[in-house]
Each structure stands twice: as structure tokens, then as C-alpha cells.
Design a protein around this nucleic acid. Structure first.
Length: 355
DNA sequence: TATTCGTGGCC
DNA sequence: TGGCCAAGAAT
């Protein structure tokens, strides 16, 4: 591999950068994050939660999770819905499913414990290269480098190459090359901290960067290469039939929307009004003056949903044919709900003086 | 390899 | 204030 860092001696430069990052981290890094503990189980949970999710958003979810499941053996007894409930609101719910799947695998193949070697760990669902490396390195089980969004941005600027997927292999090799064998745990944390605190996406704070001397972008100018490969945001309509009975119970069912919000529960969803119309006919529901409509917009990273919500109070004397098993009191729900459902419930409460 | 997974912080 | 982006992985 050819090193692009400017120096007469590449290997001297590597050790200088290593020391500069470690010293900066020692003085300025994030040392007090709640998952900075010597417990591979807690590190695992934190690393899954932190995938594509900001530290600030993760902290309360992490704390609630660890409070309910302090050890891996506690978690092994959990049901999938228990985990999804703790996850609801955090997003990317496949991660919660993967934690449950991992528990099943650990019970069958690993004596109820997380493996502490790379080859076994990366086979577990939801654990890729960066997550496996972080779990092992932070828990003191080896020295493996990472390439998360922070490191990608930091290294691509340092080397002045485009921050694109086609450079992933080069950046992975470089990330590994720069990793010191001793203090690897501190170093990968320094990697991420400098990315999130100094080498930020917009207006990087080069004035206090410990390796600004070696940064080719700082000398030759930054590449503006982040415009490529941005998936377009689709716009979709979605219809929701919100049914509430006389006991203030909500009719909820498992979400089935092309895999979106899988495993969570919500009021029945429909792709268009026709599907909703068919559904209410089948269940002998007639819309009349008892219903109200509410529209709101709910953004995902790749879809802009325009929600069309019908609130409908079900009277007990009607011939409506709805399964008696799907009515739930909001106070003791044992599964997770998508964020839009919470918005809908909040709206219902504000309309109906619900308590 | 390009998409598909949620939600909220941040400016 | 609307748009960018986040401790990525699976397919």
C-alpha cells in the first residue's frame, strides 16, 4: 500500500500520528460514556444501539436496557417483544430482532456467553466488521480497527481522498495500518472522538486538531465529495385506522408494511384509502359522523410519509366484527410501537381529554 | 453494489 | 427551518 501522508519516513509519521491522537484523546476525549466498562455484554449492547445513531440519543435507551437486563443471563430469558419494547423509539428495529436472534444462538452454541474471538463474533446477526472490532477491542480481547462514519471522514480528509464507498477498502487498510497494537482500545475511541468532536462534517475545527500538520486536505483544500450516492427520498401516503373502544382500549396489530417497523404493533395500516375501505367493510364498520380525520407528516431517512389518520370510536352495541384479542390498554402494553403510533396516540389524547 | 432499514440532533 | 447526517449491517 502506498502511503499518502506527507513525510520523508512513512513509519515515523505513523507513530507520530498515533501518539498525537492518543495524547489528544487522553486530554480531550469522551472518557465518561456509560458503556466505558469492562463488560463485553454491555459493550455489545451499546455498539448495536450506536449503529447509525447518535450518542446522545442512545444514552437513555442504553441505561433503561441495562437496568432491565444487567447481565447476559438476564437478557437470555427475555422475549422478543420485551426487547422490542425497550427499543421502541430508537429506530432500526432489525437491531433489536438481531439481539434476540443472537441470544438464541448464544444459548445453543456458545454456552450462553458472547464469543471473544473475531471469527465467531462476526457470524452473529447484526455484527459486522466495525461492530465486531469495537466489541473485541473495547473489551480487551484483541486489537482490531474500525471504519465507522467518524473514521471514514477523518481518514479520507487526512489522506484527501473521496469519502465514498469505492474507497472503503483503502480506508479500511489505512485504518488498520494506523492502529497501534498496544492502547488499541484508547486509539479506536480516539479515532471516533476526533471525528465527532474535531473533524466534524461541517466546519471542522482544524485549529485545534492534533494532526493538522499531516492533513493533506488542510494543505491542499477539502474535497466536496459527499453529494454522490444519495438515495432520493420517496414520498408516500399511508392510511391508519385508529379504533378505540368504550373502555379506552386501542385496536392494535402487528405491523405489516413491507418489513418496515417489523415486530412492532400499531393501529391498522393501509397503503391507500381503497385498502382501508375494504378492511372496514369486511369488519362491518361504517364511517359516519363519529369519526375524525387527522393528517401529519412523518419523515424517515428515505421516505416522507404523509399520514392520513381516521379516529373512530367503537360503540359496544354495534355489529362490528373485530377480534377481541387485539384490544389493549395503553398503560400495560407488552410490545413496542413505532414513533408515528405515539404521535397518533398523543393526538388522540389531546382531542379526547384522555387520561 | 445499491437499497433498505427510524428517529432525532444539529445548524 | 429544512436538510444533512449519525459508533452500519444485511441483502
Amino acid at each position: 500500500m502506498s502511503l499518502k501522508i506527507k513525510s520523508n519516513s512513512h513509519f515515523d509519521t505513523i507513530s507520530v500520528i498515533q501518539e498525537a491522537l492518543l495524547k489528544w484523546y487522553s486530554n480531550n476525549g469522551r472518557h465518561n460514556l456509560p458503556w466505558k466498562v469492562n463488560d463485553i455484554y454491555k459493550i455489545w449492547i451499546s455498539e448495536i444501539m450506536l449503529q447509525q445513531t447518535q450518542v446522545k440519543s442512545v444514552i437513555p435507551y442504553y441505561q433503561k436496557f441495562i437496568q432491565k437486563y444487567p447481565t447476559i443471563s438476564d437478557l437470555l430469558k427475555a422475549k422478543k417483544n420485551d426487547i422490542l419494547k425497550l427499543w421502541s423509539g430508537l429506530g432500526f428495529y432489525r437491531r433489536a430482532e438481531n439481539i434476540f436472534k443472537t441470544c438464541e444462538i448464544l444459548k445453543k452454541k456458545h454456552n450462553g456467553k458472547l464469543p471473544v474471538n473475531y471469527d465467531d463474533l462476526i457470524l452473529l446477526p447484526g455484527i459486522g466488521k466495525t461492530t465486531a472490532s469495537a466489541i473485541l477491542t473495547f473489551s480487551g480481547n484483541g486489537a482490531y480497527s474500525i471504519l465507522d462514519a467518524n473514521v471514514k471522514r477523518f481518514l479520507s480528509r487526512l489522506l484527501r481522498i473521496e469519502n465514498t464507498t469505492k474507497n472503503n477498502k483503502y480506508l479500511w487498510d489505512y485504518s488498520t495500518l494506523l492502529l497501534p497494537n498496544d492502547k488499541a482500545s484508547e486509539f479506536i475511541q480516539a479515532y471516533m472522538d476526533i471525528g465527532s468532536m474535531i473533524c466534524t462534517p461541517k466546519k471542522p475545527n482544524c485549529g485545534i486538531c492534533p494532526v493538522v500538520k499531516y492533513c493533506i486536505s488542510h494543505t491542499k483544500g477539502f474535497l466536496n465529495s459527499n453529494e454522490i450516492n444519495k438515495p432520493k427520498i420517496k414520498e408516500n401516503n399511508i392510511w391508519v385506522m385508529v379504533l378505540v373502544n368504550s373502555k379506552n382500549q386501542f385496536f392494535l396489530e402487528s405491523v405489516n408494511y413491507n418489513g418496515l417497523w417489523r415486530g412492532l404493533y400499531s393501529s391498522p395500516l393501509f397503503k391507500n384509502y381503497g385498502e382501508l375501505s375494504d378492511w372496514i367493510k369486511i369488519h362491518n364498520i361504517e364511517l359516519n359522523k363519529e369519526h375524525t380525520i387527522w393528517k401529519f407528516v412523518h419523515h424517515l431517512s428515505h421516505i416522507k410519509f404523509s399520514f392520513n389518520v381516521i379516529f373512530y370510536k367503537v360503540k359496544s352495541n354495534k355489529k362490528i366484527s373485530l377480534s377481541p384479542d387485539n384490544w389493549y390498554n395503553l398503560s400495560n402494553i407488552e410490545f413496542g410501537m413505532p414513533k408515528y403510533q405515539n404521535k397518533i396516540i398523543d393526538k388522540y389524547k389531546s382531542i379526547n381529554d384522555y387520561n
